[in-house]
Nucleic acid binder design. Structure first.
Lengths: 197, 197
DNA sequence: CCAGGCAGACTAACCAGTCGGTATGTCGTG
DNA sequence: CACGACATACCGACTGGTTAGTCTGCCTGG
């Protein structure tokens, strides 16, 4: 077997994915040429098309990674046995922190959906829907048990919160005054305050 | 002077802008060719480059139109003499309604910033900042006068709300169960509830 | 009869993906 | 353990197709 890692120890496929992520986030999917990706990863087109079926595949990997991570974290929190109010707060804050920790992924996520092939797009939507529904179930649980107000449909509440998460990649800057944790606490707080009966 | 309107009575530049808006929203800026735009508008490239300097100019027009409309509406509301609480509610709901009324513009707005030339991008950011600051001033006014909680920095509150507005183009569908006005009332309500002291 | 409004062929650049080729390992066999 | 057969990892020139923008010139109304 020939070299799978080069100069540094990171395997080529991961280097390609990392380079693609950074470039897609910077200039957008269409503005990033395959040539630029392979140059940034220190390989050539041969290597890329050896590991990935298409440029589109690379983008899909970004989505798959992000969706997997976030779904796992939400499930872990939602399955816990803390009171609903606490689980909602934890989930709301956690998604903010992980989003900020992967701002590149996040800005790609919401800007590049329509660059995925139709099937991949459908698949991503389906997984995203699962995530949304899990979160919505948490809200509904709180509304039924009376700890949350029922004035707003749970669906809308979820979209309200995820709008702000989505928006993070537009305005959040690491060099700004707030740490990821502080932003997360504030946003979770706003959500919980909005839900007070 | 030759024909400036064709079959229908709409002037060519506006037809081009309308066609571009619809196409940019559908497939994204990069995926829309100039050829497609002129075909949709029923003219040819000659016409487009007669009225616009570049494809990029067309995109900038979309931004300029949207920013102008929203700034005007916000100013009108903010300058009113209703109590702060009411002005914030009105402004928050109004931007939701106008965003839904121009969903194409909205989805272009948040997806295509990085397709603008650097100078135009800077200009758009500056105007957007003005809007943001006007809104923030409203929140701060409420916080100072004690009708709003001061737990969250006003900047964050504004980003929180505009995240959800931004997000509308992702999930809102006219054929869904909620009218624009209903969505607007719910979202404004969530904001005001979150701001209760 | 001229200037603005527009047509449409043309160009220069670019880019995703292909393909034949090379190098480096692994494995089975005698 | 030597050696050939095969597979994996990767290289890089090339192709076919697309695209933004240009340019020459026609056509029409004033």
């Amino acid at each position: 077997m020939a070299r799978t890692t080069d100069g540094d120890g990171t395997p080529v496929p991961q280097r390609l994915l990392a380079a693609a992520t950074r470039l897609f986030a910077d200039r957008g999917y269409d503005r990033t040429s395959v040539q630029e990706i392979v140059e940034a990863a220190g390989v050539t087109k041969g290597a890329l098309y050896h590991y990935f079926g298409s440029k589109d595949d690379l983008l899909h990997e970004v989505y798959a990674r992000m969706l997997r991570v976030q779904q796992e974290r939400l499930d872990a929190i939602a399955d816990g046995d803390a009171p609903v109010e606490q689980r909602v707060r934890d989930a709301a804050a956690d998604v903010v922190v992980t989003t900020i920790d992967n701002l590149d992924d996040a800005s790609i996520f919401f800007r590049s959906m329509h660059h995925l092939s139709p099937e991949k797009n459908k698949q991503v939507r389906a997984e995203r829907r699962r995530y949304h529904e899990r979160f919505r179930a948490l809200i509904e649980e709180g509304q039924r048990s009376g700890v949350f107000a029922s004035a707003t449909p749970a669906d809308l509440v979820v979209d309200y919160h995820f709008g702000s998460v989505h928006h993070l990649s537009t305005w959040y800057r690491p060099e700004g005054p707030l740490t990821p944790r502080q932003v997360a606490d504030h946003l979770a707080d706003l959500l919980l305050r909005a839900l007070r009966p």
